[in-house]
Design a protein around this nucleic acid. Structure first.
Lengths: 233, 233
DNA sequence: CAGTATCCCTTATGATACTG
DNA sequence: CAGTATCATAAGGGATACTG
């Protein structure tokens, strides 16, 4: 943990734990349901494994995370204190959605977007049979341009290589547009009308696909209406 | 501001601003009503003026604070975006009060406690005439042992030198005990019964003094009932 | 899968003294 | 009162390669 502020104020005592880079984002990932080291890495791709490891130890020492092993199966789980952070993450997300302004180009990341979306598929509204959604992003480096999401009744997977199954429905999207949809700032209908996103496939799937992905994004409720802050992108 | 996380997540975008040391504590001070540079310094005594200045500029650049000058009078005021951080500070404070465990000795600070208390005097319940409360802390370095709070109808001042007025009521307290009272973890009545705090003066003032100070501490509502985290103090 | 081991280097920030 | 200037040190943390 960072060094002490030497203040009795509860805000200061809390921030002693969270004023270090990445810490609260790990908590966010855990709140969102990640449990394994490499799951966390996928949600925090810019973080070095060394640092992630260090932070997890710190969080465990602080009583926020518990590391449990079951044979060779390692899991990180929030303790009650860790779950108590959900309102903090929520408040930060709400503020960030409201006041943080337009995303910089560098904040757009197809890998992260696919990872985030794949864990928020509502399988009560997706087709019963195995469904493959192919995503193509425009204006993105070739390597991370094309993605496949394989939705089965038991699981959702994403990969950047053709899994070989026949594609059920295609999504061709401007990366920023889909990201903004995901953040709740842009509506599917508007994006489809403007052509920033195109859905290609059987009509009933084209219709329902926008309901398949249910952002658990914090603060998604409040699309920014008033003037946001200046972006420093 | 700290470097970018390169994530579109609103929590990450928010934490780009707040994962640097002191930043959110400055916001806390502003929320609590400090406006001038040296007021902020008093609430953040361990922060160097250079760093405070830097942070204020960062907060201004981020649109959270506005610096206004009126002749030679400089004020820092939260913008709407800054005021929007109140729920964040609140959530952190609530979490900190609930889960942060027993204060370390190094978190106890009579100067800070006096500064914090003096701005939370409820002048609707203090005597009408000028009232001087003398605080004496036990087990504290001589220099910061004795304080005078001068409460008038228009103002409240604290100083660590005898202002020369006749003392109206005396408070002799264990520093930790008064700090815990202030945090809402310990009741006045309990502290008075145990002798950790003694109030000396006219009976009606002895009775009412505990109501004079109304903590605006965040999260003071929830004295920690369940097991708090291990303190690393 | 679940991490460690290194290495380097920027940067953050604490301390102190000074100025308009 | 409201800050700047300067300095030295420690760390924080990014990148990459490697291990059980």
């Amino acid at each position: 943990m960072g060094s002490s502020y030497r203040q009795f104020c509860p805000v200061a005592k809390a921030m002693e734990l969270f004023d270090e880079r990445w810490t609260l984002l790990i908590v966010r990932e855990l709140v969102l349901g990640s449990e394994h080291f490499n799951e966390l890495r996928r949600g925090l791709p810019r973080m070095s494994p060394t640092l992630l490891s260090k932070r997890l130890h710190q969080l465990a020492a602080a009583g926020i995370v518990e590391r449990t092993t079951n044979g060779s199966n390692v899991r990180y789980v929030l303790t009650p204190a860790g779950r108590g952070l959900e309102p903090v993450v929520e408040a930060l997300g709400t503020w960030g959605a409201r006041w943080t302004g337009r995303l910089g180009d560098q904040d757009l990341d197809p890998t992260l977007l696919m990872w985030d979306m794949h864990r928020c598929v509502d399988r009560t509204v997706t087709p019963d049979s195995r469904t493959i959604v192919q995503f193509t992003f425009l204006g993105t480096a070739r390597a991370s341009r094309r993605w496949w999401m394989v939705i089965t009744s038991g699981d959702v997977d994403v990969c950047d290589e053709d899994p070989g199954f026949e594609v059920t429905v295609r999504v061709i999207a401007d990366l920023r547009a889909l990201t903004e949809i995901w953040r709740g700032e842009l509506g599917w209908s508007h994006a489809l009308r403007s052509g920033a996103v195109v859905i290609d496939g059987p009509v009933e799937l084209r219709r329902s696909l926008p309901t398949w992905f249910v952002p658990r994004s914090f603060g998604a409720a409040a699309p920014s209406v008033a003037a946001p802050l200046v972006s420093d992108g």
